[in-house]
Design a protein around this nucleic acid. Sequence first.
DNA 1: TCTTGAGCGGGACAAATGTCACGGGTCCCC
DNA 2: GGGGACCCGTGACATTTGTCCCGCTCAAGA
Lengths: 209, 209
Amino acid sequence: MTETPRTEPVRVLLAEDQGMMRGALALLLGMEDDLEVVAQVSAGDAIVEAALAHRPDVALLDIELPGMSGLDAAAELRVRVPGCRVLILTTFGRPGYLRRAMEAGAAGFLVKDGPVEELAAAVRRVLAGEQVVDPALAMAALSAGPNPLTPRECDVLRSAADGATVADIAAELHLSESTVRNYLSSVIGKTGTRNRTEALREARHQGWL
Amino acid sequence: MTETPRTEPVRVLLAEDQGMMRGALALLLGMEDDLEVVAQVSAGDAIVEAALAHRPDVALLDIELPGMSGLDAAAELRVRVPGCRVLILTTFGRPGYLRRAMEAGAAGFLVKDGPVEELAAAVRRVLAGEQVVDPALAMAALSAGPNPLTPRECDVLRSAADGATVADIAAELHLSESTVRNYLSSVIGKTGTRNRTEALREARHQGWL
DNA sequence: TCTTGAGCGGGACAAATGTCACGGGTCCCC
DNA sequence: GGGGACCCGTGACATTTGTCCCGCTCAAGA
């Protein structure tokens, strides 16, 4: 025979923090008779151990997760569980997210808009070795260019996130206040914005944090 | 007979902006044989007309929606489609949201965490005339007290949301810069915070915006 | 080897932000 | 008729923030 029909269902790991979403997706995928959800986790730092325990064929990962980010988990899966393909499933189609997902070795990138049917289809395509990415999003990611912020600038910006003062940030990162202000000024310049709040919005929107 | 078994399935309207979530929930509810999803909308301002057209028994509304908020839609449903009970389904269990939902005449308030089974159960309970609210959340809403911000203070805070300067806000709301600064100062005082960014976080967290 | 960029910090300055004490007006309610 | 709320505004002031200099170290690359 030229085609060997798969007898065992595809094993899927599902990482998603929102309970209702996770449950709904699991039920949905479970209804497909060639798919089986073998593990569900709600925190990023539980992904790798669950993958080691259940040996999924595909890991369906949200990005914003408590603990470790889905992107970091993807990178770790790549080395610790090489047989497992990663499909990123996220609310936000940020250019920087897509770029990081690809760099982390993800096989696909799906946004939570769009119809549910896309999901099972994407899982199957990823398993067939295809790269699953929305072409429009890919273009946006390419044209946006890479993250211009240095790691330290990202740190400072993250610390500034919820209204922390320069003094707070300096204390948190063990820096002098002068240094913090210099970094913030640099970030504001690179993002082409007028203050740290705008810079933060822009950096988030680009997926640089 | 003392019980009249319902022959017609319960008619449900579903308002949720995230495509995958909406589809998954619709499929889920559709699997229950006493429930039928008769309308799905992704924008807040489409809720009322869809309800008028399809006469649902229960409207399942997200809060953060493009166009009109689910809370405002709930209030409008109360007068325009009185037979339709409202069940709010939201990501965030903010005290202020719950309070506003109750004031808008919602029959239930559900957060998107927690298991999927809760959903169909909540729909049935709401239809039976019960008030569906997580007791812990209700306590939090009560103990938090009402929104201390005046309407104008909320306006200014909303305008300040994405890094706008005092001048920007003044121009947008047709106020003098002095007035804007006074409002912001007042908001910072009332929220017990140190600057507008912290104030914004706190107000959002409380569900006051 | 020389340059470049990242990391860190200092100092001085202008601009933005936040605070306070005041004024006026309206409306509603006791 | 007098509070008391909210609304809107001024002006003065202290603090914070953002900018632009400058300095230094270290590692990587041409």
